[in-house]
Amino acid sequence: MVVFRQELGDVLRDARRHQGRTLRQVSSDARVSLGYLSEIERGQKEASSELLAAVTDALGLPLSFVLREVSDRIALTEGVAIPDTVPDSLREGGVTGVGTDHGRPTLVGVR
Rank of each mutant, 00 (worst) to 15 (best):
M1R: 10
M1I: 15
V2K: 04
Q6M: 11
Q6N: 10
E7A: 08
L8S: 04
G9D: 05
D10F: 13
D10I: 13
V11A: 14
R13E: 07
A15W: 01
A15T: 10
A15G: 04
R16T: 10
L23S: 11
R24A: 15
R24W: 10
R24G: 12
R24N: 11
S27W: 11
D29S: 15
A30N: 04
R31W: 12
V32W: 12
S33Q: 15
L37E: 00
E39F: 12
I40S: 05
E41W: 03
E41F: 01
G43A: 03
G43K: 07
Q44P: 02
K45R: 12
K45I: 03
E46W: 12
E46T: 06
A47H: 04
E50Q: 14
L51K: 15
L52E: 07
A54Y: 02
V55Y: 02
A58Y: 01
A58N: 02
L61W: 07
L61P: 04
P62K: 08
L63V: 13
F65D: 08
F65K: 04
L67H: 00
R68K: 14
E69V: 11
E69H: 09
S71E: 12
S71P: 06
D72A: 06
D72V: 01
R73L: 07
R73M: 04
R73H: 03
A75I: 00
L76Y: 05
L76H: 13
V80R: 13
P83F: 06
D84I: 03
D84Q: 04
D84N: 05
D88I: 05
D88L: 04
D88R: 09
L90C: 07
L90F: 10
R91A: 01
E92P: 00
G94W: 14
V95F: 03
G99Y: 11
G99W: 02
R104N: 06
R104I: 05
P105C: 09
V108P: 04
V110D: 00
